[in-house]
């Protein structure tokens, strides 16, 4: 419980820091702290595999690209100039509304009025300390669930990601120059020959 409160404070503080920091790299550092705290929070919830993947995918790959782009784009270490305030006027009421809604969720969960869904039928995962093999949330358990019960959603997600990658390449990449076909090469040769002939006629 102590771990939960400490991690929560770190999580929220780093998230606020990420949003309010003047320099983009500060935001990246805040996000890094956020991801690390989130990974530890997953560990306390006995989601070992999720914690590790959180670090590998988000901190190890995506955030590195952020740093890479910022380092490439921003010259020097000066803070970015603040742009026009594009926040709509409804921002404050919206925040209040979300806070109230979240408060209701927390209240309901602590009062025990919302039932936490039971594990799916056929699940044999036993509860146990984090870090031991074949308990709920371990690599083996997660893999089994992913490739048996949840195989279809998993494959569909993979397909969607693949489509996204292809889409990005299609939208952002420049079209390659058309490869010279035999017919076009013959056309170019003919044009050259005719040009030479014309040139000769002009000289005459």
């Amino acid at each position: 419980m102590i771990a939960f409160w400490v991690l929560s404070v770190v999580l929220i503080a780093s998230a606020v820091w990420t949003i309010t920091a003047q320099k983009p790299v500060y935001s990246v550092v805040g996000l890094l702290a956020n991801f690390a705290a989130l990974a530890i929070l997953y560990l306390t919830l006995s989601a070992e595999f999720l914690a590790v993947i959180q670090l590998i995918v988000y901190s190890g790959a995506i955030l590195v690209l952020f740093v890479f782009v910022i380092a490439l784009l921003s010259s020097g270490v000066a803070p970015f100039a603040a742009g026009p305030n594009r926040m709509p006027k409804a921002a404050l009421p919206a925040v209040a509304l979300v806070c109230v809604a979240l408060g209701f969720v927390v209240f309901a969960v602590t009062r025990g009025e919302v039932a936490i869904p039971p594990p799916p039928a056929g699940s044999t995962s036993a509860l146990g300390p984090v870090g031991t093999a074949d308990v709920f949330g371990s690599v083996g358990d997660f893999g089994k669930a992913l490739f048996t019960t949840y195989l279809l959603p998993f494959e569909v997600t993979a397909l969607i990601l693949m489509v996204a990658v292809v889409g990005v390449v299609l939208l952002s990449g420049t079209a390659p120059a058309k490869a010279p076909t035999r017919r076009r090469a013959a056309g170019v040769r003919r044009e050259l020959r005719e040009a030479v002939v014309r040139d000769g006629e002009d000289r005459r």
Binding site: A39, F49, V52, L55, G60, S138, G140
Partner: peptide, 13 residues
């Protein structure tokens, strides 16, 4: 149990 994944996670930082 997830030793090798843990190694990858930390070294990627």
């Amino acid at each position: 149990d997830a030793g090798i994944l843990f190694l990858m996670a930390i070294s990627s930082l």
